[in-house]
Amino acid sequence: MSGSVDRSKFEGEGHGEPSAVGDIVEWVARGIIEGRLLPGDDLTSVDLAKRFNVSRTPVREALFVLSREGLVDWSPRRRPRVSAVRLQDVREIYQLRAILYAEVSAAIVEHASDADLASLSDAHRRLAQAAEQGDVDGYFWGNVAFRDEELRVCGNGIFKEVLDSMRMRTNRLRRLSTSLPGRLQRSCADHQRLCEAYAERDGVLAAALNRSIVLGALQAIEQAWDHAPLTTRRR
């Protein structure tokens, strides 16, 4: 699951089944992000333990991680379930991302080498190929990789730390926006203009474009919210 889960947080000392926690987190998170697991779906430890052929201990640890990341609702005396999303939370997340990515772009223009800018252009070419093929998941994960490359190139560890802390819940929203009608082509064209601003080393333009990209995705989500599969389903 490229770009979506930092497996190093779930592996290593302290786990009797070290890789199992990361495997479960990855499988459940990807299912939620890509829409195969929907708000209100039960996530029983028995079923997950059978699927991964492990004890219930790593399952509980994985569900705790997913709860902490905002993807799972695990209330006292209730089964863990895929969490719902509030539109107000979406707006607050995207408003913060818009501010941060504008600063990321300014830092990229200031610090990036020619090789760094070429790497960003290569990442965009992969986006363009997925967009041309109408491959929503391919484009989405390619966009995750593009954003990761931006954070690497900008060289600001605090920006990366803050944006990584929202990664799972943000990817859930980003996957939704990518899947909306017309969004692949629009997003691809916007990222092309962003790469051109980087190449021209125009920090003001790059910051404005990146802010616009984030807020444009928010606007698309807002317009589709009544039909978006992110609120709790009726049972």
Rank of each mutant, 00 (worst) to 15 (best):
R81M: 10
A102I: 04
E103Q: 13
S121D: 03
A98H: 05
E132W: 09
D42P: 05
A107L: 14
V65C: 04
W74K: 02
T57N: 07
V46T: 14
A145F: 07
A128D: 14
D47M: 08
R79Y: 12
W141M: 11
I108V: 05
D89Q: 03
L120N: 00
R86I: 07
Q133F: 09
F64L: 14
S121I: 04
G155Q: 07
L100Q: 05
I93P: 03
D135W: 05
P80T: 02
V144S: 09
Y101P: 01
D41K: 07
Y94Q: 01
Y94A: 09
I93L: 13
P76R: 15
F146E: 03
L100D: 01
C154T: 02
H124T: 04
V82K: 06
S121R: 11
D114W: 07
Q88D: 15
S113A: 00
E61Y: 05
Q88C: 08
D41V: 10
P58F: 00
R79C: 05
T57K: 15
A118E: 13
L43Y: 02
R91V: 14
D42N: 11
D41I: 02
G142A: 02
A106V: 11
L87A: 12
D41H: 04
A106P: 04
G138H: 02
R77T: 09
V54G: 05
R86F: 10
E92F: 06
D135I: 06
N143W: 15
L117F: 09
L100K: 05
L120I: 08
Y101T: 03
R125T: 07
E150H: 06
D137Q: 13
W141F: 15
D42H: 11
